[in-house]
Design a protein around this nucleic acid. Structure first.
Lengths: 231, 231
DNA sequence: GCCGTAGGTTACGCTCGCGTAGGTAGCAGC
DNA sequence: GCTGCTACCTACGCGAGCGTAACCTACGGC
C-alpha cells in the first residue's frame, strides 16, 4: 500500500466531483475555528438554497472540501449546524435593524426600520431566505410558528410602547406586529426575486402603505432622509 | 343500485376520523372516487401538519386505512397527491375570496376580501397552512417563489385597475400586492395559533392598518358591515 | 354458478442520507 | 526522532421511505 498521502492532495482537485457547479476544492488544512466558520458559511448558503431537509450533510462537507465526520466533529450533526446558523442569522438581523434606528419621530423610526431591514435582505440574502423558510422540526412539532412569526414577537414591545403613548390598546400590538412584519417579509422575498427597484424605493413604498394606508397613499413616496426625486 | 355496498358505506364513514391521530384501521372497501377523496383529505391534513417532506406515503396510506400501492394507484406518488391537494386548495381559496366580493367602494372591497380570506383560514386551516408553507421542490429549484407569493400575483390585476383609476403607477401594483398579501398571510398564521380575537375583529384591524395606515389608525376599528361595538 | 374486474394486499428492491468506528497525515515540543 | 495532539480521512451500519411486482378477493353481470 502506498502511504504517500500527500499525492492525494494533488489528485483530489481533478477528482470526480459531484454534479455541476463545483469548484475544485483546494483541500486545505485549517484550524478548528477557520473550518467551523467555513462550515457555517457553506451551511448557510446551502440551507438558503435548498432548505433544511433538502440539504445533506454530505453536500455541506463536500462543498467545504472536507468529509462528513468533520461536520459532526464541529456541530454534532445537521441540526446542530442549522441551529447555530439560524441563531447567528437572527441576531445579525436584529442587530442590523436596531443599529439602524437612530430615533426621532415614529414615522422616522419606521423609515429607518424599513431601510435597515432591506439592507439586511440585500446584504445577507441567504440568511433572510433561511429566516423566511420554516424551521426543520419546529413547524412539524405541535403549534405552528415560523421564525418570522417569532421575530415579529420582538417588534411587539416597540410597537406596544408607541401604542400606549398614542392611546391605543397595547394588547393589540402583537397583532399589528404580525401585520407589519408579514408585509415586509413577503415584500422582501419578492424583492429578492425580481430585484427591480432600489432599496430606497421599496422602503419608501413600504412606508407609504404602512404609514399612510391605501386611503392616503402618495403616488411617489419618498423617505424623509432622501433628497432625490424618484418613482 | 341496490347492493350490499351499503354495508361498507356505513362502515366507511367511521373511516372519516379526521381529527384524532391514530385508530385501528377499520379496513373498509370503497369505490375509487371515495377512496380518492379520502386520500386527498388525509393528505391535506398530514401535509398541513408535517409539511411535504415530513409526510411519508406510508403514513398517508395507513391513516386512510389502506396500504401504500393504493396511493400510487390513484396519484402516481407523493408528488402527484400533493399537486392535487395544492391545486384544489388554491382554487378553493381564490373561490372563497372572489365569492365574498360583492362590489362597492374600494374600502368595502377591502373589507370583504379580508373577511373572506379569514373565513377561508378559519374553515380550511389545513389548506391555509399548506399554502403558507413552501412547496416541495419549487422552493429548491432555481428562483425562490412561495405559493403565497404566486397568489399575490393574482391580486395584482385587481389592484392594478384600482391604481389606474386613482392615478398611481400600475407598475407598482405587484409590489403592493406582496405587501398586502404578506400582511394578511402572516396575520392569518398568527391567528391560527392564538385564536384570540374573532374573525371580524381581526379583519377590522387588518383593514384599519391597510386602509388608514399607522398615521391614521382608529383605536377601535369596525367594518362598515358590522353593527356591533367592539374592541 | 362462473368469471372479470375493481379494489386491495404482502413483500420486496433500492437509494439516500444520517451518524459512527477506526485509522492516517502533519505539526508541535521535548 | 519519538510522542502526542489536532485535523481529517475511508468505510461502513442502518433505518426511512419511495416505488413496484405479483398475488388475492369480493361483488355484480350474465
Amino acid at each position: 500500500m502506498p502511504s504517500r498521502r500527500d499525492l492525494t492532495l494533488v489528485a483530489a482537485d481533478v477528482g470526480l466531483k459531484a454534479p455541476k457547479k463545483k469548484a475544485p476544492p483546494p483541500r486545505t488544512r485549517m484550524t478548528g475555528k477557520e473550518r467551523r466558520e467555513q462550515l457555517l458559511d457553506v451551511g448557510r448558503s446551502l440551507f438558503a438554497e435548498k432548505g433544511y431537509e433538502g440539504t445533506s450533510v454530505e453536500e455541506i462537507a463536500s462543498r467545504a472540501g472536507v468529509s462528513k465526520p468533520v461536520v459532526y466533529e464541529h456541530f454534532g450533526g445537521k441540526e446542530g449546524l442549522y441551529a447555530v446558523v439560524v441563531d447567528r442569522e437572527v441576531s445579525r438581523m436584529l442587530g442590523t435593524v436596531t443599529e439602524g434606528l437612530s430615533g426621532g419621530t415614529a414615522r422616522e423610526l419606521l423609515e429607518q426600520a424599513a431601510m435597515a431591514l432591506l439592507s439586511y435582505v440585500e446584504n445577507d440574502s441567504d440568511g433572510f431566505r433561511i429566516l423566511v423558510r420554516d424551521s426543520p422540526v419546529a413547524s412539524a412539532s405541535g403549534t405552528f410558528a415560523s421564525l418570522i412569526s417569532d421575530i415579529a414577537g420582538q417588534v411587539e414591545h416597540i410597537l406596544g410602547r408607541e401604542f400606549k403613548t398614542r392611546g391605543f390598546d397595547p394588547q393589540l400590538a402583537p397583532m399589528y406586529s404580525q401585520m407589519l412584519v408579514g408585509m415586509v417579509a413577503l415584500t422582501g422575498q419578492w424583492w429578492l426575486d425580481a430585484q427591480k427597484p432600489d432599496r430606497e424605493v421599496v422602503a419608501a413604498h413600504l412606508v407609504n402603505l404602512a404609514w399612510n394606508g391605501l386611503s392616503g397613499m402618495e403616488a411617489r413616496p419618498r423617505l424623509s432622509s432622501d433628497k432625490r426625486d424618484r418613482t
